[in-house]
């Protein structure tokens, strides 16, 4: 494997982790809003998951951007010209969301407002982010040389955009419903488990529907990608198998009150998502932005590449222990998970 491919693989790993963590984070925001009017624990649980974890998720976004610029400095130009609008809107929405996340923790009277802000931004931010994908497959860029711009009229009338957004949003809600059902189990709240399990059952087939239509709309839009996709059909087949196992796990017998093995469902769905997104990314190669920019054009200097690899190795060695502590305190500790109210956490 050549160096640019190693680099793009690392970017894919970061993107994958952020996509999963972000989907769950933004999805939890949506669910907290969706259930805010009803008398249920579903809102409290979603918020308890969000409170300590959004900061960590947010850092992954910066990590992703820095990794792209570090490994592929040639891509900076396109980010700064073509992508400046979608990225800026995402930044503004994230800023509002994060600020309210903290403010409502300190001042309880903002909690209601926060529920709406994090719910609405929880849909808008992922929709904007996923919209960058169809922009990168080509056909929506006008102008020449230094003066390039996105053809918004063509983009907004293209079905590819909407199938991608539909896929992004349903995946987000499906994944977060699955994880929250697992989190509810871990907290010993079977009633809330049932609520999120039901949502996952409804959303599973819809997600699959959008995944397939997104692929179908690629055929006229990006035939160059579809060719590779056919070559690696087995990756997508495996992904379907993982999806089937994960979805069926929602009915597997369990020792608890209600049926279903939420943990198995989460793991296989994440695996499915990993296989499918790897297949998508692989078919995208060697282009970062079709047909303007390949990973080879944008790649950094080989010396720098090596130092960046050392840097990531060292940084991860430092962080993994920190994550383990974090996980044990917030995802495993029964005292935290089973606290009666939504504010069972110190000050």
């Amino acid at each position: 494997m050549t160096e640019p491919y190693v680099a793009i693989l690392i970017i894919w790993v970061f993107l994958f982790v952020y996509a999963i963590a972000g989907a769950i984070d933004f999805g939890a925001g949506f669910w907290a809003m969706y259930y805010s009017k009803k008398e249920t624990n579903a809102t409290i649980l979603a918020n308890r998951y969000l409170t300590p974890s959004w900061e960590v998720t947010n850092v992954f976004l910066v990590l992703l951007v820095i990794a792209i610029v570090g490994f592929f400095p040639g891509a900076a130009f396109y980010m700064g010209t073509l992508m400046i609008l979608p990225f800026s809107f995402v930044l503004i929405l994230i800023a509002i969301r994060s600020a309210f996340m903290v403010f409502s923790f300190i001042v309880k009277k903002y909690t209601k407002l926060l529920v709406y802000i994090s719910g609405i931004t929880g849909l808008l931010i992922p929709a904007l982010m996923i919209a960058i994908l169809p922009m990168a497959i080509g056909g929506f860029i006008g102008g020449t040389g230094e003066r390039q711009y996105i053809l918004f009229d063509q983009l907004f009338t293209s079905p590819t955009l909407y199938t991608h957004i539909g896929f992004g949003l349903t995946t987000e809600l499906f994944l977060s419903a699955l994880l929250l059902s697992d989190y509810a189990r871990e907290s010993g709240s079977e009633e809330t488990y049932a609520v999120y399990r039901k949502n996952a059952i409804i959303l599973g087939p819809i997600t699959l529907f959008f995944a397939i239509t997104a692929l179908l709309t690629l055929i006229p839009q990006a035939p160059w990608m579809v060719e590779t996709m056919i070559d690696i059909w087995y990756l997508f087949a495996l992904s379907l198998v993982a999806a089937a196992i994960g979805y069926s796990a929602l009915w597997w017998p369990s020792k608890k009150q209600k049926p279903g093995r939420a943990r198995v469902a989460v793991i296989f769905t994440v695996l499915q998502f990993g296989l499918a997104s790897f297949g998508y990314g692989y078919s995208h190669m060697p282009y970062i932005l079709y047909p303007e920019l390949t990973v080879f054009d944008a790649f950094t200097d080989p010396t720098m590449f090596r130092w960046l690899l050392y840097g990531y190795a060292g940084g991860l060695a430092l962080l993994v222990p920190a994550f383990v502590i974090f996980w044990r305190l917030f995802m495993k500790d029964k005292k935290y998970l089973q606290a009666e109210s939504g504010e069972g956490n110190g000050y």
Binding site: I66, V69, T300, L308, G311, L316, L318
Partner: peptide, 14 residues
């Protein structure tokens, strides 16, 4: 920056 001084930016994230 990406070619010459990307390392501190990257460690800064950690």
């Amino acid at each position: 920056v990406g070619k010459v001084i990307a390392v501190p930016f990257q460690i800064e994230i950690f």
